[in-house]
Design a protein around this nucleic acid. Sequence first.
DNA 1: GTTTTTGCAAACCATTTGCAGGGTC
DNA 2: GACCCTGCAAATGGTTTGCAAAAAC
Lengths: 149, 149
Amino acid sequence: MDTTSIVNALDGAGYRLTGPRRALATLIARRTGHFTATELVDEAHAKRLRVGRATVFRTLEVLEALGAVERLDLPSGDHAYVVCRRAHHHHVVCSRCGRTSEIDDGGLRFLVSEIARRTGYRVDDHRLELFGLCPACMATLPGPTSVSA
Amino acid sequence: MDTTSIVNALDGAGYRLTGPRRALATLIARRTGHFTATELVDEAHAKRLRVGRATVFRTLEVLEALGAVERLDLPSGDHAYVVCRRAHHHHVVCSRCGRTSEIDDGGLRFLVSEIARRTGYRVDDHRLELFGLCPACMATLPGPTSVSA
DNA sequence: GTTTTTGCAAACCATTTGCAGGGTC
DNA sequence: GACCCTGCAAATGGTTTGCAAAAAC
């Protein structure tokens, strides 16, 4: 995901292209793993960018609504964000380096409708989050070489 | 879930059976839907129970570790809890009345291993949360009678 | 020129913590 | 009696808000 895509998303939705928003688009586009609003605030501050705390939260809110970013709830209870391409999907999150990979709905769609049928609920929304170790982090890890699921 | 089961869980794990913990066990056992720590604090206060704010949080933490309760992350970002029976499972949450139903792992287990295979991650943990309308709430709803998933 | 955005700082609010007193085993 | 728990109240830390100035269209 590059800066331009995020900026275009804002522009296309009728939001004004301001300095702070462009700056944030760049910071976010550079991210590889998940990040928190506070991390973004600190990074902007460290780089002497003119971006206030409130603006970071407000921009993330807009970007989430536009589907350019998605909010994750980490097992720790923290709220983190990840950049994303499509509107709805799910992620595998590496609990060591924070890297995320998108996963497609595949069998999940069927699973959800099956659950709706069994419980009698009308299911409007669902969230699936997976946590573990990405291939790169596994490689740097000591111990047994065998891999379990 | 009744008060006794929760108390037994605490006792069995070596925790002391104190007044506040018994009181909380009762409040929690009576809950049908999801609830927040703050709601519990307020309810205890309203009923003049001798239970401090900190104790509510500390007790919920213990109960979660024991698997008597599970924490949900609602789409709103709020943290809520639900009583539960087995150690690991997932929930469908009614976004209108808050009622929850447990759902079994069923096809999910396969789905998770499939995702691990495709992404190369070692998946250690996963969370699936479904949101929608429970049968009772659907029945009280105006509008078209047809149901969609 | 009108409308949106921003930054700041204060307000908010859920959650955590330190610690002295009280309860449980 | 030793150790675990509790309440309180203060500290914490993420997130939101009010508002006047600044920027975008």
